[in-house]
């Protein structure tokens, strides 16, 4: 199979992730959308790595995974703090800062 298809798949995944951020009210789901975007990027890296016939892209993907994991920790911490305070994790709810 043409590895380029993986790139296209990555693009589609990226778009789905972005759509999740835009459309889902639940903070956790939106955050999952972000993770999906990151993983789409990983997929693209790996696919390109394959296309170019070298390993660099795959190594990069590992870096990204580690970073993404760290991000999850921080993200969840914040979401939990918000939940404790407001008893909700709706992204639309806290909207006092505006204008």
């Amino acid at each position: 199979m043409n590895p380029m298809n993986y790139v296209i798949l990555a693009a589609i995944l990226f778009s789905i992730g972005a759509a999740a951020v835009l459309l889902r009210r639940n903070a956790i789901v939106a955050f999952m959308g972000v993770e999906l975007m990151l993983n789409a990027a990983n997929l693209a890296l790996v696919a390109f790595s394959r296309i170019h016939g070298e390993l660099d892209g795959q190594i990069m993907a590992f870096f990204v995974m580690v970073v993404a994991a760290a991000e999850v920790v921080v993200g969840l911490a914040i979401i939990i703090a918000v939940f404790r305070a407001r008893q909700t994790i709706s992204l639309d709810e806290p909207a006092e800062l505006k204008g």
Binding site: R25, K98, G99
Partner: peptide
């Protein structure tokens, strides 16, 4: 008004 306060 563009700055709606809605993160989405």
């Amino acid at each position: 008004k563009l700055q709606t306060g809605q993160v989405r």
